[in-house]
Each structure stands twice: as C-alpha cells, then as structure tokens.
C-alpha cells in the first residue's frame, strides 16, 4: 500500500469526515472537508502508529494535517530524517 493509501485509510477511520475520503484530492483542505481539531489529533496519533514514527513538537500544528499531500510530506520528512 502506498503512503497516500495509508493516509487515506487513517482518515477514513479517524477523520470523522462527513464525505467520502476516496473522493478527496490530495491537495483538498481537510478542515474544509470537516476535519475537527479533535479529530485531527486522532489522525495524528493514528498516523504515528501506522508509520511507526513520532511527530516532533514543531510539526504538531494544524497545517501539518491540512491535506493528504501535507500529511504525506510530513511523514516522508520524518522518515528521511530518521
């Protein structure tokens, strides 16, 4: 499974989005799609589990989880630094 697919899977399980995650473009704004700040925390924790990574403090902010592409990029950045 690609990273993008894994991110979509996490969003489906934890994002509590009203719409279908499969229909979201990778750059679509997840907050506009209905991601609440509390749900974004669950997404963050599930992404950490899924990829076995830990977000550094400076990445624990809204923009890190603003789109599928943004999450994907953050995961890649952490993986490349470890």
């Amino acid at each position: 499974m690609s990273n993008e697919d894994k991110v979509r899977e996490v969003l489906t399980e934890q994002g509590k989005l009203p719409g279908n995650v499969a229909e979201l473009g990778i750059d679509d704004d997840l907050y506009q799609a209905g991601l609440t700040s509390h749900a974004s925390v669950n997404v963050m924790l599930a992404i950490e589990d899924e990829f076995d990574i830990e977000f550094p403090d400076e990445m624990l902010k809204k923009s890190t989880f603003a789109s599928i592409a943004a999450i994907d990029a953050a995961v890649q950045q952490i993986q490349s630094e470890s």
């Binding site: 700040s37 974004s40 925390v41 624990l60 902010k61 809204k62």
Partner: peptide, 14 residues
C-alpha cells in the same frame, strides 16, 4: 499530553 500540544497550538493559532 502530546495530543494536547496539538490542540493547544490549534487554539493559539486560531
């Protein structure tokens, strides 16, 4: 906790 750090940033940024 860590989840809270993110909620705090959201609260501040917003």
């Amino acid at each position: 906790g860590r989840a809270g750090r993110m909620l705090a940033v959201n609260q501040r940024d917003g």
